[in-house]
Computed example of a mutant assay.
Amino acid sequence: MSDLLTDLRNADEACREAESAVSEHGKTRIEAVADAHDRAMTLLSRYEGKATGTGDFKAFVEFQGQFADLVENLPDDLPARESFERAEDISDKRRLSEGDFDRIRQTLEPADEIASRLDERREANKQYHDVRRSVADRIAELDEKIDDLERLQELGEADLDAPTEELSEPIQAADDAISSAFVAFKRDSSAREVMQFLTATEQYPLVEFDSPPEELRSYLLENEVGEKSIPDLLELARYSRSKLDHYVSDPDELKRTVSTNETYLDRLGADPLLIGWPPAPANELRWWCEEAIRVADRFAPAEAVARLREVQRLTHDSRFDTLRIAAQARAELTDEERERLARGAVEDELQQIRERKTELNDALSDYPKR
């Protein structure tokens, strides 16, 4: 925590220093120094191996002339111009050694320092941005921790003796009825009817059946084999091609389409229509039941759909969420969590985290985006 704040302060100070260094000469003049320094370094790299010692005299003359032209054409007020002039003095000899080239580079270091200021400012700003992002990420982590602890407190306040069976029994009855109805629907209906059902569920986003692969959907909707049930199709897909000749007109197409989707067909079940335990909050479950009833009504008998309607009715009961939280507390609270709640450790930790979050939020305000 303290490290993040220190990093943010240090990054801000580095940005201010880098900005001040750029302001001393201005962006345009620094870019001119960088351009001149780059051209000087290019000349040194190009001629160092050829213009030294008793080597290529022509290269030696070219280097001296081009370096002199470079310096002569520099603006008089160019920052660090004197370093270019001293470098030219070093090059103005009858013979140059590798040591002379090293001395020229050293002499140009003041120009290099000025030329690097824009890069240093860019890097300082990037570092500042990265540290601010780390602070923001830490705040997000603290928000999640606060949510977890507040939920733990909510569970700790639950009445563990509440009659949760008033919810669990009708919910279990609804889940059992819908599960049985879907098993019968999948077993007794044609694969085409199941595909049509799954297609229809796509308009109910709260009931999340996985849409069938398009190739499988088209095959079962458009071919005669779609009149068979899914269990029969899965059995056929395991037959040899020669045996399949007696059942379908195109064994290869059935194997290619059904066998490759065997896992999807095998796992297809009523899970998207099951409420589960503990249930969702009343306001969420109420809207889910609205869609689930419409979906279930497409395949389930009236008595199974009625079980869902009974659960939906319960969501209007003012005690629903109280009983739901009690059920969650029974299912989720560990002995260690109950002990921490009893001695106030959760409240203490929550207070500390809130204070840390406030401190970090204040830091982001004190050190805004650049």
Rank of each mutant, 00 (worst) to 15 (best):
L333P: 10
T257G: 01
S318I: 10
R330I: 09
E253T: 13
A304W: 06
T260W: 06
P251Y: 07
N261L: 05
P281W: 04
A270H: 11
K255C: 02
E262G: 03
V305Y: 01
G276V: 12
V305K: 06
L274Y: 03
R309E: 15
A282W: 04
E310M: 05
W277M: 15
V311N: 11
A326H: 08
P279S: 09
A331D: 11
A300F: 02
R267C: 03
L285D: 12
C289G: 01
A304M: 03
V258W: 01
N283F: 11
F320W: 08
R256H: 11
I325Y: 09
W288D: 09
E291S: 04
A302F: 06
L285P: 01
D271F: 03
A296P: 01
T322M: 10
Q312I: 11
A327W: 06
E284Y: 06
V258S: 03
L268K: 01
L308V: 08
A306Q: 14
K255P: 00
I275Y: 08
A280F: 07
P301G: 05
T315G: 12
L323K: 05
R267A: 12
D321Q: 02
E332T: 10
V258R: 00
F320R: 01
A306P: 00
A280Y: 13
R309D: 15
A329G: 05
A306V: 00
S259Q: 15
R324G: 10
P301E: 05
A282T: 02
A282F: 04
T257Y: 01
C289I: 00
R313W: 04
D266R: 12
W287F: 09
Q312Y: 09
A304V: 05
S318N: 10
L273H: 11
A270G: 00
T322S: 15
A302W: 00
P278W: 11
V311F: 11
R286W: 08
W287E: 13
L265N: 02
L274P: 01
A326W: 08
P272A: 12
V258C: 06
E262T: 14
W288K: 02
A296V: 08
E332I: 02
N261C: 03
A329F: 03
I275L: 14
D317I: 00
A331Y: 04
A327E: 15
D297L: 04
G276Q: 11
D321V: 01
L265S: 05
V258E: 10
S318C: 00
D321Y: 01
R313H: 13
L333C: 09
L314Y: 10
R256F: 09
L273P: 03
Q312H: 15
